[in-house]
Design a protein around this nucleic acid. Structure first.
Length: 210
DNA sequence: GCCAACGTTGGC
DNA sequence: GCCAACGTTGGC
């Protein structure tokens, strides 16, 4: 049984998105090679607390991933073009933070890795699914998903509030989290991190909370 | 539960 | 292709 992720944007056609995304990906690649800031790590949001959407509970926390066979599941239900396009960029072996969103204490709970690259998200055709998309056709599916495997919990939960403090500090000083997508692109449920951002966030698990 | 931010839709 | 209206995200 596939996990249920939150991604609630209604999914009607958007004829510009695919082509635009490809163009920007090419120029991004060039820019990122030059700066050494190619996106290579990810942050993926999911709701760890129960919430009913279209009659279905969308709860899927890191413990739910951990309890699946092989601690592996598909990241279905993403219904936003930018988030989808980031999933299509993912490569096997890359690491992602598991972020708990829309809950009492939002933040990073653990690490997972990509174990299967993007393929068709079957839930878009499932009328019983919380993220069923009647506008997507079998001969031209709109939505993709990847498979992820639980890697480990972070040594401590890293709350959004703490990340935000660093983000604000770093904006002033030009340090690692100054452009972190979690703050510059707050509503994006699948987002890239540079290696520098990823390493900084991960280093926090060894620090005292502040 | 509120609502700011922002992505999507559709009339024109 | 503009942009007002609408719908969703997600912190608070």
């Amino acid at each position: 049984m596939p996990p249920k992720k939150r991604a609630r944007s209604s999914a009607k056609s958007n004829k510009h998105t695919d082509a635009d995304a490809q163009h920007s990906e090419v120029s991004d690649d060039v820019a990122q090679l030059k700066t050494g800031k190619r996106k290579s790590h990810w942050l993926m949001k999911s709701e760890a607390e129960s919430r009913i959407e279209n009659g279905v509970d969308v709860k899927f926390g890191i413990e739910d991933l951990k309890s699946l066979p092989n601690q592996t599941g598909c990241w279905d239900g993403v219904r936003n073009y930018q988030a989808r396009n980031f999933m299509r960029d993912m490569k096997v072996g890359q690491q992602a933070f598991f972020y708990h969103s829309n809950c009492k204490e939002p933040g990073i709970a653990g690490l997972m890795k990509i174990v299967k690259e993007a393929y068709v998200d079957h839930t878009q055709f499932d009328t019983k699914d919380a993220h069923y998309d009647p506008s997507s056709k079998a001969d031209n599916p709109k939505w993709s998903m990847v498979d992820v495997q639980f890697e480990r919990m972070t040594k401590r939960f890293i709350p959004l509030t703490e990340l935000k403090k660093y983000h604000l500090q770093h904006k002033a000083k030009g340090e690692p989290l100054k452009d972190m997508a979690l703050f510059t692109r707050a509503r994006l449920s699948v987002q890239p991190l540079t290696a520098e951002e990823f390493d900084f966030v991960l280093s926090l698990e060894n620090e005292d909370p502040r």
